[in-house]
Design a protein around this nucleic acid. Structure first.
Length: 435
RNA sequence: GGCCCUAUCGUCUAACGGCUAGGACGUAUCCUUCUCAAGGAUAAAAUCAGAGUCCGAUUCUCUGUAGGGUCACCA
């Protein structure tokens, strides 16, 4: 009978967490879910000065948004009594001792802290990603494990809490590798088993340094506000330093759970690439249903532009929802609800002339008038206009003025879709005006 | 500096010790409908260096180099 897998995400609420931090959460979560295990969220707030409620709430909110549900939640500060119990036990058994030392705040006051009695031995552990790691603990000295009985420090708190929560797999960033021997030492002292370790290679910024807020790494809120899809973030972030072993790149939440495996986690750090994340998002947008797409895009559109028929036009031009907003502010969609203003010279294609342009437009109007309102589809409009362009030197001699008359923009969707969205009356009236 | 880890296109990566080192993002060119977008096609682009083992090394070993992490009364 195999032991149930229990993993945890143990962030410290001392700031907004960036994608690198959430990646460890994602991997822990995926691993637990893949093995029908449990995922625990533990807020490590033993640093009472720097930990704040605001950051804690942000973590909770972000995990929720990402769709990472946890089976248990607690704050480390709620476990002080347990920590104290183990501290007392360690002192009693001679694995830790009280030490009178000068306070480090420069006050010259004497203070009693608790140090771990280091046996100075080689510690080796099996890492799911790195393989066997051996380290000597001699140069660690008798490290401090608590400020006092009621204020445990990181290493003690982590070991006790992991033990009490029955954590079987500690999945965390590579920056914790060198903390591991210390924590194994404490485990042995309190009689706790050593969990399986998996130290993830770090996520680096474009400067090839560890992703950090100071160097411009963004909190998860940023991506939420930019209009990324949570599943796309999940997918994109999971692909930093991991691959499924196949060519498939687009994964849903459930597919990720199924596919995830440590054996495919990279050993070397990876540089985070925001462009690829946008691509992931675009691909996830494509998977949305017509209804979801419409609702989402409408959220970002002013009322006069909430036109169902322009949804596909917008959809293929954005990679995240905020791009919709940008299209609106740049006026790229204005022509859908109001007549465009433009200079008539710009109606003329390249070296063509005013006369030729006008006569081409006239011919088009005459041909298009024969279409009923119901048959005024992009396919039909295209057939008619393309037939006319066959006789021209260049198709642009007609397509450009038509498109420009309808949109008033240098860059816009093609004339056929615009015509269809505008409808017969509006299309013909704009063409007449141009003539 | 000590200790630990790592090294394949610009970036993310694939390749039982064995095909022309494959895919994706990005870039460039072309096609589709004048422009934009989407789509399709094509191209440029990599095994850090040097030894060793081997019939054969991206893959194993050693050395060098480079990069990263870590060395708190933070987590």
């Amino acid at each position: 009978m195999k032991e149930k897998v229990i993993t945890r995400f143990a962030p410290s609420p001392t700031g907004y967490l960036h994608l690198g931090a959430y990646r460890t959460a994602i991997f822990s979560y995926l691993y637990a879910k893949k093995h029908n295990g449990a995922f625990v969220l533990r807020i490590e707030n033993t640093d009472r000065v720097r930990s704040t409620k605001e950051y804690e709430e942000n973590i909770i909110e972000s995990l929720k948004w990402l769709g990472l549900s946890y089976d248990r939640f607690y704050r480390q500060s709620e476990h002080v009594e347990t920590h104290k119990k183990y501290l007392e036990k360690m002192i009693k058994e001679g694995n830790a001792y009280l030490s009178q030392e000068e306070a480090k705040d420069g006050s010259k006051k004497m203070k009693e802290i608790i140090r771990f009695k280091n046996p100075n031995i080689d510690i080796s552990f099996e890492d799911e990603i790195k393989g066997k790691v051996v380290m000597n603990t001699k140069d660690l000295g008798n490290f401090v494990i608590a400020k006092n009985l009621n204020e445990p420090l990181f290493h003690l708190a982590v070991v006790v809490d992991d033990f009490e929560a029955g954590i079987t797999h500690v999945i965390r960033g590579e920056d914790h590798t060198s903390n591991t021997p210390r924590q194994i030492l404490i485990q042995r002292a309190i009689g706790a088993p050593t969990p399986v370790y998996a130290h993830l290679p770090l996520v680096l910024g474009p400067d090839k340094l560890k992703l950090s807020k100071r160097r411009g790494a963004q909190p998860i809120n940023y991506y939420k506000e930019m209009g990324f899809l949570p599943d796309a973030i999940l997918n994109g972030v999971a692909f930093i330093g991991w691959n499924p072993g196949t060519d498939q790149e687009i994964f849903t939440h459930d597919e990720l759970v199924k596919a995830f495996d440590f054996s495919k986690v990279q050993k070397s750090p990876a540089i985070f690439n925001e462009e690829k994340l946008e691509w992931f998002n675009k691909e996830h947008i494509k998977k949305l249903s017509v209804e979801e797409l419409k609702n989402k895009i409408f959220e970002y559109l002013p009322n006069n532009l909430k036109i169902e028929r322009i949804i596909p036009i917008i959809a293929e031009r954005i990679s995240k929802w905020n791009d919709v907003k940008d299209m609106v502010t740049r006026g790229e969609l204005d022509f859908f609800y109001k007549e465009p203003k433009y200079e008539k010279e710009k109606l003329i294609y390249k070296n063509s002339s005013l006369e030729k342009t006008a006569s081409n437009l006239k011919e088009s109007v005459m041909a298009l008038e024969k279409l009923s309102e119901k048959d005024f589809t992009k396919e039909n409009v295209k057939n008619i206009l393309m037939k006319i362009t066959d006789r021209l030197e260049s198709r642009g001699e007609l397509l450009h003025p038509v498109r420009y008359a309808l949109s008033g923009l240098d860059k816009s969707p093609d004339p056929f879709v615009i015509a269809e969205v505008l409808g017969k009356n509006e299309t013909l009236s704009r063409l007449q005006k141009a003539i």
